[in-house]
Simulated assay, not measured.
Amino acid sequence: MADIHLDNAVLAVLQDIMGDEYAVLLDTFLADSEERLRLLRRAELAADAQGLRLAAHSFKGSCSNMGAPLLAGLCKELEEAGQRQILGVVPGLLEQIEREFAIVRILCKTELQRYRI
């Protein structure tokens, strides 16, 4: 089930590449994701389609790089909504993104604990 939310094969490659800095990468991803969620919420409140598009695009990239395909897909949908200036779908998409990130966060923290043992 974890592979659906966080691809273990991607994490294994990242761990090989990053070596001792793997835990830093995971911590950075989590902190960066929290900030991106704040930016998305601010853009939503301001009805800023361009801000939504840009923040969703950045979040999509980091999620893709970390092997979080469902989260990346939701960010892509939000990015496209911002690009098309279809703001009516934004609240629902943001809720889905936040729920999926909550799952990814737990899996990343579990991965951190496993790695640090």
Rank of each mutant, 00 (worst) to 15 (best):
D3N: 13
I4L: 15
I4F: 12
L6S: 00
L6H: 06
L6F: 03
D7F: 03
A9L: 08
V10L: 01
L11Q: 11
V13M: 10
D16P: 03
G19K: 12
G19I: 07
E21Q: 12
E21P: 01
Y22A: 02
Y22L: 03
A23E: 14
L25C: 01
L25G: 02
F29S: 00
D32N: 08
S33E: 05
E34C: 08
E34F: 04
R36M: 13
L37K: 07
L37T: 05
L37A: 06
R38F: 02
L39R: 14
L39H: 13
E44H: 14
L45D: 15
L45M: 13
L45T: 13
A46G: 07
Q50T: 11
L52C: 08
R53Q: 15
L54Q: 14
A55N: 04
A56I: 04
A56N: 04
S58W: 00
G61C: 04
S62Y: 00
S64P: 04
N65E: 01
N65A: 11
G67Y: 01
G67H: 02
G67N: 04
G67A: 07
A68G: 06
A68T: 06
P69V: 06
P69G: 06
L71I: 02
L71N: 00
A72D: 00
G73L: 03
L74E: 07
L74A: 04
C75T: 07
K76V: 08
K76W: 09
L78T: 10
L78F: 05
E80N: 10
A81T: 04
A81M: 07
G82T: 01
Q85T: 12
I86G: 08
L87M: 13
L87F: 02
L87R: 07
G88Y: 00
G88E: 14
V90L: 08
P91C: 04
E95P: 07
E98N: 08
A102R: 07
R105S: 09
R105Y: 06
I106Y: 10
K109S: 10
E111D: 11
R114S: 12
Y115G: 02
